[in-house]
Amino acid sequence: MGDFSAVLFSEWTKVRTVRSTWITLLVAFVVTVGLGAVISAVTNSQWNSMSDRDRLTFDATSTSFSGIYLGQLAVIVFAVLVVGNEYSSGMIRATLAAVPQRITLLLAKTVVVLVLVLPVALVTCFVTFFLGQALLGDHGTSIGSTHVLRAVVGAALYMTFIALLSLGVGFMLRKPVLSLGLLMPFFFLISPILSNVPKVKTVAHYFPDIAGTQMARVVGDNSVPYGPTAGLFICLAWVAACLVGGYALLKRRDA
């Protein structure tokens, strides 16, 4: 299978030596934290005008994570570029000449994305949570409350899964414009719209972002027919499908 630790080190060197890595991850942090803070503050100030129904299903944790909706786009860009940059520059040929075992390459990139995004996502989600709760004032919750820690970690896992899924799509579609042209509208527009359309939503509920949202909730969403644990496995299934698909094409195609 090749010299995995050497390839891993090499992939880490690649990721660390381009500016886009640090810019995209910083944007993911700032947007997720910032937008979450704004929405938490607004929710707090508008509390009195909320309907009783909204107040009953109010989830302080998931409200503070509202910024993930936008912040995930930066994570998608990061992961797509990890592989897409190589195809757009032609560097993939240098890579595959140095590492002809394609499974080794894909696994090394997967591990690098995982070990870089997971800590960034954890920091992002904890900062987002504490800042959001502070701004929610009396309506906020605490990390020690039931299921709250699980939801915060769940949100970080969701961001990580989105990155891995995007990496798989990046391997499948190769050109960054194609991958971004598919993933950004999907997560930003198509999935949120479809999951609100009657009938269609019974399928759309199993989309990765809807499943991921369940992982980051404390109060269950009764419009979705499964809980956070199932959400985790649905997300994992999407990640696995995209990476396996990416590998199948990487293995078969000419570089």
């Binding site: 690649k14 030596t17 940059n85 520059s89 032609g90 993939i92 040929r93």
Partner: peptide, 9 residues
């Protein structure tokens, strides 16, 4: 083909 990422030294 030029096989380098333009942003890397």
């Amino acid at each position: 083909a030029k096989a380098v990422h333009p942003g890397r030294t």
